[in-house]
Structure formats: C-alpha cells, structure tokens
Amino acid sequence: MCPLVSNMSELEDVSHHIHDRISSVHRMLDLSVVELPQRKKLGQEFVALEKLLEEFERCVGRQKEQLKQLKELEETFQKDLEDVQHLKENIPAHMPRKKGPANGGEPVLTQKEAADVQPAQSENVKKTNKSVVREIEVITLPEYESIPPYMKGRVSYHQLNAAVQSINTAVTAKYKILRQSAKTLNNQARKLHQRFKDQETKDTKGQYFVVDDDIREFTQMKADKRFQGILNMLRHCQRLRELRGGGITRYMLL
C-alpha cells in the first residue's frame, strides 16, 4: 500500500477513536450529574482521549512530512519534464547516425531485418544497393571541440553540420545524374553528366567526390573563403581529402 494512503487510513482511524471517546465523555458528563461513580470512569476517558490526541498529532506530523516530500518530488518531476520538452524542441537538425560501410556497398541491417530477407530477394537487394550514395557523416560535438580555435573561427557546430548536409545534397544530386543513361536526360542534365565524367580520373574510380561547381549548382552555399575554412575543418575531422589535377580540386569523401 502507498505510504500516503496508509497514513491517511491511520489518521482516519485515530479520528474515529477520538470521536468515539468524545461521545463517551459527553455521555459520562451527563450521567455524572446524578451518578457519582461515573466520575472515576470519566477521568479514565480523559486520559485515553489525551493519548489519542497525541497520536493524532503524530499522524498529522507524518502526513505533513510526506506532503513536503511529495511537493519536492513534484518539483523535481516538473523540472525533468521541462528539460525533456526543451530537448524535444531543440533536437539538432543533424544528429550523428550510423552509416553503411565505407565503400558505399551493402547497407547495415538489424538482426530482425536480416532475418526477414529471403534468399529469393538477393538480386533485388543487390540492385537496391547500387543506388546507395555515400554521404559525409555529421560532425560530433567532441570532434567539433577538437578542432583548433584558429581553424574554427566563427563557424558554430550547427553551421558546420549544415555545411555537411549541403555537401551531401550536392553529392546525392550529382550521382543521381551520373547513374542515369545520358539518353534519358534533358540537355542541361546531359551537359552535367558529361562534365562529371570528364572530371573523373583513375584515382577517383569507385570514389565519391564533388567540386566547387557542384556546390554552386546544387546548393545555396557559396564556394568562398568561409567555405574553404569549413573544408579545412572537415579535412581535420577526416571527412574529406583533396585531390588536385587538371586545374580542378576534387573533394573526396572519406
């Protein structure tokens, strides 16, 4: 039984006893006017009533203490609730998440998902895996804090991860075009497809990369000095590396 309910039941029992004793005292007072022997009994009832009143005070004291504890618990719970609500309303837009293998191949499956995959579906799974595009993993807070201050400048943690998201957008858009047949594309997309092909070298085979023009084409970011500073931070966090050649700087995903 809940301690508070138990104390309330105890308090009610004591209250009933006090009420019964008071009623008994009233009867004896009425009888004491005509019956002298009742006065001795009346004194005993007063003693019993006094003890009951003392017990009643102790019960009240215990309930006051429990009420105080419950109020403190309520305040703690309310603070926790406010903290949870604050976290819910301020979830970073770019939470770290587990990515697939570095080669952009078969995605990671949970045990349940793996158990649901039937052998007859293996060909479909392989076809789906070919459409998976590599992305840069978001920067964790410890990684951000490890970046030297001179390198970070005024770029905040959220701004850095917003840039990561923009680069991933450019990568996804670029390789979506590359994986289509040039015959199925319109004139503008066909020109982009050819440009992407021309930028590839033997060193980029099987790798994902973007260049400054891709950033301008597919995102709202400017490939300016600030962007170069962000790239330095991403290289520091081992998300990118540069590959130069043919007058182009390629930002290779790691």
Rank of each mutant, 00 (worst) to 15 (best):
M1A: 11
P3D: 14
S9W: 00
S24A: 15
M28E: 15
V34H: 14
R39M: 12
V47F: 08
E50T: 05
L53N: 09
C59V: 01
V60N: 13
T76Y: 03
T76N: 13
H86T: 09
E89C: 02
E89Y: 01
H94S: 08
K99T: 11
V108R: 13
Q111S: 13
V117W: 06
Q118Y: 11
P119N: 08
A120G: 07
N129W: 15
V133E: 09
R134F: 04
I136N: 05
E137T: 10
I139N: 03
E143W: 01
Y144V: 11
E145V: 04
I147Y: 02
I147V: 15
P149W: 00
K152E: 00
G153F: 00
R154S: 15
V155P: 00
S156V: 01
Y157K: 01
N168E: 10
L178V: 10
Q180C: 13
A182H: 05
N186K: 08
K191T: 09
H193W: 13
H193D: 06
R195K: 12
E200C: 12
F209H: 04
V210K: 02
V211E: 11
D213G: 05
D213E: 15
R216S: 15
T219C: 01
D224Q: 02
L231S: 13
N232E: 14
Q238L: 11
R244W: 12
G246I: 03
G246T: 00
L254W: 02
